[in-house]
């Protein structure tokens, strides 16, 4: 018996020693502020949607952690979307974009909703025509790109530059990782439970997630609904059914509801669902509570670009 305990303790040591989460950078040195500011304007401008009702911000709301509090977002003509809108914050650190990772870059991502007939329903020439009629935009683009005619590629470029600046640094946990502060006992217990219970297996890296795909219902099967675009819709491999990108846990308390289907309205529900389907355990209430406390330390500062004039 002693041997068993020894082996298991060895395992534990391995778990605790591994530091697999990295803090966000406190300063970004790769942002062209003028361009990002122009991107910010475009991001919030409904001019980019066909009936001028929807902007990027409509579904990536800065008051809700860069995500959408609704179950699904609504596009033009009140079209309901087919998946819960993920956060735009720290999206630059996502290994792929969209729930099913069909876009490799932010640029590819930004192009998507603009053309999606359910979302903004626009094409490049209409956007160019509209923006080129707007004197304020013409002046702003000229200042940034030096060209007198606004091109669609420039529009995307500016939006992407803005999204690159949407980083939420200095979360309590990041500061803990940097050794600046210590977590409360409860929070620390939460972090250890997070690791011990295996959450960290998938939620690791700088974005605490968003660096791999995972099957929803690895241990206990999860309802499969073809209406949600999963990884299978990209690869058409059987084992990719119900597979989605592991979402980031940064700012998680701000971005309810949870999961691709918005099925969890609270963190507690979400943790329970995850524990059952993907960890194959029943999480103790004590662990759930402390993990929630830990997750609350992952909320970072509002991106500074939002408050720049």
């Amino acid at each position: 018996m002693k041997q068993v305990v020894l082996i298991l303790l060895l395992f534990l040591t391995t778990i605790l020693m591994a530091s697999s989460i990295r803090p966000l950078p406190q300063q970004l040195d790769d942002i062209n502020i003028a361009k990002a500011t122009l991107g910010k304007k475009l991001f919030s401008d409904t001019i980019l949607s066909e009936d001028k009702t929807i902007s990027c911000h409509s579904c990536h709301n800065f008051n809700y952690g860069g995500a959408d509090p609704r179950k699904v977002s609504l596009g033009i003509n009140m079209n309901a979307g087919n998946i819960q809108s993920p956060t735009v914050y720290n999206a630059r650190y996502n290994f792929k974009q969209f729930w099913n990772g069909r876009a490799n870059t932010l640029l590819d991502q930004a192009d998507g909703p603009v053309h999606n007939p359910m979302e903004m329903g626009m094409d490049a020439t209409v956007i160019e025509a509209r923006l080129n009629k707007d004197i304020a935009y013409k002046r702003a683009f000229k200042a940034v790109y030096g060209s007198s005619k606004i091109l669609y590629a420039q529009v995307l470029d500016a939006i992407v530059e803005f999204e690159m600046a949407l980083v939420t640094p200095n979360a309590k946990f990041d500061r803990f990782l940097r050794g600046e502060i210590s977590l409360s006992e409860q929070e620390m217990n939460g972090y250890i439970a997070f690791k011990k219970r295996g959450c960290i297996t998938c939620h690791n890296g700088i974005n605490i997630g968003s660096n791999a795909f995972q099957k929803m219902g690895l241990f206990h099967p999860y309802d499969f609904n073809v209406s949600y675009p999963d990884r299978y819709s990209v690869t058409h491999k059987e084992y990719d059914k119900n597979v989605f990108k592991v979402p980031t846990l940064r700012n998680i308390v701000l971005t309810a509801p949870y999961f691709h289907d918005a099925s969890a309205k609270t963190l507690e529900e979400a943790i329970k669902t995850m524990a059952h389907h993907n960890l194959g355990v029943r999480m103790k209430q004590k662990d759930i509570d402390t993990i929630i406390l830990f997750l609350k330390t992952l909320t970072g500062e509002r991106p500074s670009i939002l408050d720049k004039k």
Binding site: V4, V5, L8, F11, L12, I15, K196, R197, G198, T201, C202, A212, F213, Q214, K215, L218, F219, R231, K237, Y239, D240, V243, N278, L279, G280, V281
Partner: peptide, 22 residues
């Protein structure tokens, strides 16, 4: 991607073995 998926489950199961066996 597939390997990473399996690997995660695997590790979780080993986590269970190590943490819950006690």
């Amino acid at each position: 991607n597939h390997y990473m998926m399996l690997n995660a489950g695997f590790k979780n199961s080993f986590v269970f073995l190590s943490t819950h066996a006690e």
